[in-house]
Design a protein around this nucleic acid. Sequence first.
DNA 1: AATGCGTGGAC
DNA 2: TGTCCAAGCAT
Length: 317
Amino acid sequence: MSAFPSRALSEWFRRDHRRLPWRETYDPYRVWVSEVMLQQTQVETVLPYYDRFLDRFPTVEALAAASEDAVLAAWSGLGYYSRARNLRNAARRVVADHGAHVPDDHERLIALPGIGRYMAGAILSIAYNRPFPVVDGNVRRVLSRLHGWPEPKERTLWDTAAAVARAGEPRVMNQAMMELGATVCTPNAPRCGECPLRRRCEARKTGAQAEIPLPRKRPPTVRVDLHAVLDRNRNGYLMREDRGLWEFPMLTDPPGDGFLHLGHCRHAITHHRVEVDVYRGALGRRKGYRRVRFDAVPVTSLTRKIHALAETPPNQR
DNA sequence: AATGCGTGGAC
DNA sequence: TGTCCAAGCAT
């Protein structure tokens, strides 16, 4: 077994990595914020949020002192809002229990809400340059192809990633693997000609890049028809707020007379001036209806518009 | 272990 | 236009 080509990889990273705002510092708090934002979220999406969020909450103390509403407002549009609530709660604990110092040991990091094995490894390696592994989707794909594993075991991936982190400067090695997966070893049409690992890559040897790694089995999509209730009263439309997100009440059965199905009323959103009534909790969270898969819901594209409208003060409309 | 979480990009 | 997909964390 030949050694991992750490030199080729680190030199490639130092030369070819994208210059991104969160790569201008190793400040643990900033690294942490970037990792939370980037979780399940693409770089392009995060870009407009990152600096703004840190202007608003420049330190872990500032974040800990902020209200949940203020943090959610800064997160609005990024999705996965429990990330923002966990981040704030974790910041409060860092201030209360660790003297506002982001922990530099695995046990204390992973005990914080919203920090799992990946994020602990990312903070330890990138901020503190300690040799802890990271396995995200990018690393998984790069390692699978490199070693020719169509269905890699988690255990094997983490063990292999740990060896990678130790093969050079941890913050460079880990970021290089993720950057490689994001920019070169992409899911479709990987640019193998530019890859610093190409001479060792098993998938490339056999031309099996497209089959490695195999997609994970997904449960079949269950379709559920949902009806958003568009209840126009004299002040506007009835809406509810679910932890910072505005939406129409939704029912599995068609609403009765006096209500309109949103699906028939798309124009209403853009053709009327919408005033928002806050409708809190009377339907219960998801009670009485189920949302099985988000993209099976026919009102998603409107939710964002509603959210934007709800945030605009009435005197600006 | 299987599932929900929100958004945006690919096709 | 709709449908699928990404891929970390908590539960």
